[in-house]
Amino acid sequence: MQDLTQLLRETAEDLLKRKAVGVVIGYGHTGSRGDMTAVFARTPQQVSQLALDGECYRNLAVYLNKPEVRKLGRCAIVVKGCDRRAINVLIRENQIAREDLHIIGITCEGVGDPKMQKCRFCTVHNPPDCDTVLGDPVDIEPEEGEFAAVEAFETKDIDARWNFWKEKLKDCIRCYACRQVCPLCYCKQCVVEKNIPQWVETSSHLRGNVMWNVMRAFHLTGRCIGCGECERVCPVGIPLGLLNQKLIQQVKDKFEFTSGMSADEKGPFSTFDLGLDTDDGIL
């Protein structure tokens, strides 16, 4: 991967030197612990902080929503295929214009050690529609059983399911890390911050936590691209990805839709299909 890092630095340096962009958002081993975190290269000198390796698991697309980052000027951003999907959703929802971005795609065989769950079922190893692509094309077939965890959970009866979620959700401290890290949670005012009326109680008692976590998950229906960042950052270990996976499965089965595959797509709830939709379960 060393040569890819070199290529990335050259690309970033060129973009910054000719002022094509104001910032290159990428990965780098920052700090004394060497964790792979976000790097914001704003000058040609800073490109030496950029790096690429198998630890690029974060989804940097979240930073495109930050006003502080947007103020730095036109953004170049380093993305894997999954992150690229998040950008497609941001474009389709008019949060950012394609021409305001220089997308540096990296082909990806999967990240993390051991490989993250999402990488096993990935269909976008080669990020589409990028301005620069780094790395050789990757040809890996997704594994079977993308929704195995959902199906396994659904073998539980209804009371066991509720008991499971009750135990998990009672630990929620309402830090909103799940919301803040999500590239698709960009509302300037979240529903939990609306208090006339107070739709979602802010207290971290179970009642408020159930309301918050159900609504968070549902707001991402047909939008979530399954990057898994919410679950990764949850400080109390709530399996948020399982809720997201259930909804990803639902829109795939019912509406034949997979989020973020193109910037032109319409979200499943902003359209309908008389040939597909049924009155099942409606009196």
Partner: peptide, 13 residues
Amino acid sequence: SLKCLGCGACSYL
């Protein structure tokens, strides 16, 4: 602060 996402995990814990 560019990196900070503005959640409350650090303060709450």
